[in-house]
């Protein structure tokens, strides 16, 4: 009897230890991926967004983007004219502001808006905010192949998000996310993301992100051009003062 208990205990320890190692691996992979995504101290660029509906009709949006560290991002539409000047500021601690030129003042984005489409695109305000995945999600390694790791990300306790989980393929060679599938609270697949990367200097960056809303059968391709890294952007860019002085 004693032997049986000993064997069972040993097996449990092995299982728990193996599970722990796997979790640590997943956390390590996600951390490494965040380091790749947020490797530049700062970056600026121009975005061209191609919105495609289920009939194949396309609409174009253009914007400028500024990013610093892992938690500051400014985004300002430059075209079309009806959207020009609309700006979005993402700051640490889940603080986001929207500036609509017609109202001439900024407005805090309340939590209820975060799962809404950002200016008609398939990206939500939550997708647009600048936050590392490690700080929001607990990862689990689902699968490993020669080319990629498949991670399942579940929201950390207390995080307000529209997603119940995200499944993400992380490229093993460069540690960037190749594709993602996000699921709603009912477990239904909500959106897919496909990324195409390019290398600029020493950094890999997503040259094109294609987000598809499966329910709407609508997609947005976000194509980045004129990317500049490490230009020592001032913190003053990421302020309400700058947001409103368009």
């Amino acid at each position: 009897m004693k032997n049986k208990i000993l064997i069972f205990g040993t097996l449990m320890l092995v299982i728990i230890f193996a599970g722990e190692t796997r979790a640590q691996d997943a956390a390590g992979i996600l951390k490494k991926m965040d380091e790749v995504l947020y490797a530049p101290k700062d970056q600026t660029g121009q975005l061209r967004m191609v919105l495609t509906d289920r009939s194949g009709n396309e609409r174009i949006r253009e914007a400028s983007i500024w990013q610093k560290g892992t938690d500051k991002r400014m985004f300002r539409f430059t075209a079309p004219a009806s959207e020009s000047g609309i700006a979005f500021l993402s700051l640490p601690a889940d603080v986001m502001y929207l500036f609509m030129p017609a109202f001439e003042k900024e407005r805090r984005i309340a939590t209820h808006v975060k799962n809404q489409p950002f200016a008609g695109t398939d990206f939500s305000y939550e997708d647009m905010e600048s936050v590392s995945y490690s700080s929001k999600y607990t990862p689990k390694l689902l699968k490993e192949t020669a080319e990629y790791w498949l991670l399942e990300l579940t929201p950390k306790s207390g995080l307000q998000t529209n997603y119940s989980k995200i499944e993400m393929k992380v490229n093993k060679q460069h540690a960037y996310p190749e594709s993602m599938e996000s699921f709603d609270k009912g477990g239904n697949k909500l959106k897919t993301v496909e990324n195409t990367y390019e290398k600029e200097g020493k950094y890999w960056y997503p040259k094109e992100i294609k987000m598809t809303d499966l329910k709407k059968r609508h997609s947005t391709r976000m194509i980045m051009t004129k990317v500049v890294f490490d230009s020592n952007l001032s913190d003053q860019i990421f302020t309400v003062r700058n947001l409103t002085s368009f």
Partner: peptide, 10 residues
């Protein structure tokens, strides 16, 4: 004053 109570903007 403006902010959120829960997820409601106020």
């Amino acid at each position: 004053v403006a902010g959120s109570i829960g997820s409601v903007g106020v």
